[in-house]
Design a protein around this nucleic acid. Structure first.
Lengths: 173, 173
DNA sequence: TTTAAATTTCAGAAAAGACAGAAATAACCG
DNA sequence: CGGTTATTTCTGTCTTTTCTGAAATTTAAA
């Protein structure tokens, strides 16, 4: 697939941001390409367009699928896989947030629960430290619960709430 | 500083999560240690407790200070720096979100603004692609604006809103 | 100043991660 | 079944990041 200068620039930028976003350059570039591409692409087309090894594309696509950002389609009479990215920006954000919560928050939440339980029969750890762990656990539980609630709300409602901005504060006055 | 088994476990867990959180293991471990520590610690104490090079501690502390998660204090008659972590969990979250927005969102927002402006005089890029860039830009601008508004709200208000959970939806019905 | 403590900078070692290319596997067709 | 094409797994190389230990710099007291 031929990239116009504008598309080229976007793909490169995605690649540069990859490190900060916690993915490899290939993953980010492939995602940018598929997001912009008007039609689904094959793995070979992706490899050729971005000048990366075919195997690398394979691994990166698996990761993007794990994030639920990319899916596979097929064309009649063609047994190759065609890959397409989620185009709905709101959904993209949701998938990324879900993924991050799962990878960055949930394991720590789990660990804090265990630590907090252990703390009960732990007589060497200062009360102050136990208390800090307990507070942090409580906070994260609350945050996670809130996220799940918000996550379950219909999108139009969330959009309206967002657009109200600071005005939502009025209901708690 | 001597670590109890519970503290030890927390520090190790923080270190293991470091990669996912986008910081080095040392940075995460030092943060965990300072967060739990009942009193401020010197760089030497940190290095000794965690068994890392003194220079490594120096660099890591600089990074934690850049995130505004750690600050320096002093003791009378002692010219060493004593480091302490922000203890207020809510503030910790805020600092991390601010930092992430600045590093992970703002550069892309800037780049999309430029791309979108360039797209005006770009005749080779398909309309469909330009449209996708425009939509994404608009979405990110809205999200960033919303974040700034929320960010400026007083904490008690935010807490109340959070605790309302799905009930906030009532005001937009 | 001089001296000594505390901290930072820097260059290279070590570890981790990303990537290419080859080999292996799977899917499909005649 | 072969033969062919698509895809994945594996292995070693290369790159980047992290970390250390020594040297240099800063800081403050004597």
């Amino acid at each position: 697939m031929k990239l116009t200068p504008t598309m080229h620039r976007c793909v490169l930028h995605w690649g540069e941001m990859a490190g900060r976003w916690g993915v490899s350059r290939s993953v980010a570039q492939i995602h940018a390409l598929l997001f912009l591409a008007p039609a689904p692409l094959t793995a070979d087309e992706i490899a050729e367009t971005l000048n990366v090894a075919r195997s690398n594309v394979s691994v990166s696509l698996k990761e993007l699928q794990a994030w639920d950002l990319v899916s596979v389609t097929h064309q009649l009479g063609d047994r190759r896989d065609y890959f397409q990215a989620r185009k709905d920006i709101w959904e993209v954000l949701t998938m990324i947030m879900d993924g991050r919560k799962k990878r960055e928050i949930d394991p720590t939440l789990q660990m804090l629960r265990e630590c907090n339980a252990d703390a009960k029969k732990d007589h060497e750890t200062p009360e102050q430290v136990k208390e800090r762990i307990a507070v942090m656990l409580e906070f994260l539980e609350e945050l996670a619960g809130w996220y799940d609630q918000i996550r379950a709300m219909p999108r139009p409602t969330l959009l309206k709430l967002m657009r109200m901005g600071t005005k939502v504060a009025k209901i708690v006055t």
